[in-house]
């Protein structure tokens, strides 16, 4: 059983974070970011060609984290691989000591740096979750028996700000039926609105980690409001960032994130912090949120 699974079962407030592999073979910066998160978070997601930009794969960085005694969450998208490659990568991941997998659709290649690439999507995220379940039961998608089966702790994502929400909730239910054992969400900035979402999904009895994006500037907040589905950074927060002198902005960013986390503590089972390059702020954020001595944190 992975540490993440154990922690979520134990009922402690769980913190995960993430790193993004680099474009190129120099992993130093990426591994340093992961190192900063040691003992602070339970598991570290490794993104899979985030924003459809070609880079080092999630699998390789996950393996390097395992070597270092850090617990990765292997993000796997449906964008680039057919069902043979997806199953193969999942089996490979297990042999490398990777126990958590987050199943995502993936951004469209048109949005990335190789817009002419073929969009694969042989499976969708629901089918991918089902694939993980099938592998966990010792078979492949074609029904063949495996010599040695994995036992992944599989997660999925949900967008609490999606409109219409009903459509998103139906998909969430399908993901749970297909084997999703935990959820990480799109960035949350409005705890009250998020609480209403949690009311709706409580009956599913699947742990939800609310997404926390560290706001680096008012401009970034405005950009996300305009371009990222389901994100609503309240005007008050944007004003707060605007009124902050440049040399104090990191402090303010950390404060805002910590405040959100404190408010979310009573609402959901944990948070997933997306530092977007500011991983070094995470320990401070957790301290301000009163979570530094977190039970079960990755050792």
């Amino acid at each position: 059983m992975s540490r993440l699974e154990k922690a979520l079962h134990s009922g402690v407030f769980v913190v995960t974070s993430e790193v993004g592999p680099p474009k190129g073979t120099d992993l130093q910066g990426c591994l340093q970011e992961a190192e900063v998160l040691r003992d602070r978070v339970i598991a570290i997601n490794v993104t899979d060609l985030q924003s459809s930009v070609m880079r080092v794969g999630s699998l390789a960085v996950c393996a390097r984290l395992v070597e270092r005694g850090l617990e990765p969450v292997f993000q796997l998208t449906c964008r680039d691989r057919n069902r043979l490659a997806m199953q193969s990568d999942l089996l490979s991941a297990w042999t490398l000591g990777i126990k958590n997998v987050l199943c995502l659709t993936g951004d469209h290649p048109v949005l990335g740096d190789h817009p002419e690439a073929k969009a694969v999507f042989d499976l969708d995220s629901v089918q991918l979750l089902k694939t993980v379940s099938v592998l966990n039961h010792g078979r492949d998608l074609a029904g063949h028996e495996l010599e040695g089966a994995p036992d992944f702790f599989a997660g999925a994502v949900v967008n609490p700000g999606a409109d219409p929400l009903e459509l998103q909730l139906i998909k969430m239910e399908k993901k749970i039926a297909a084997g999703a054992q935990f959820f990480q969400t799109q960035a949350v900035f409005e705890p009250e609105k998020f609480a209403r979402f949690m009311e709706k999904v409580r009956a599913y009895r699947v742990p939800v980690l609310a997404g926390i994006v560290i706001l680096k500037s008012a401009g970034m907040a405005r950009y996300m409001n305009k371009n990222v589905a389901g994100i609503g950074v309240p005007e008050g927060l944007i004003k707060e960032l605007e009124a902050t002198p440049k040399n104090q902005i990191r402090q303010k960013s950390a404060e805002i994130a910590a405040r959100l986390i404190r408010e979310l503590k009573e609402i959901c089972q944990g948070v997933h912090i997306m530092p977007l390059g500011w991983a070094d702020l995470v320990p401070e954020i957790l301290e301000m949120a009163g979570l530094l001595e977190m039970a079960g944190a990755a050792k």
Partner: peptide, 13 residues
């Protein structure tokens, strides 16, 4: 755009 069979991705707005 992604030919998904089990519902929308999280990007629809």
């Amino acid at each position: 755009a992604k030919g998904l069979l089990n519902g929308p991705c999280g990007g629809a707005q």
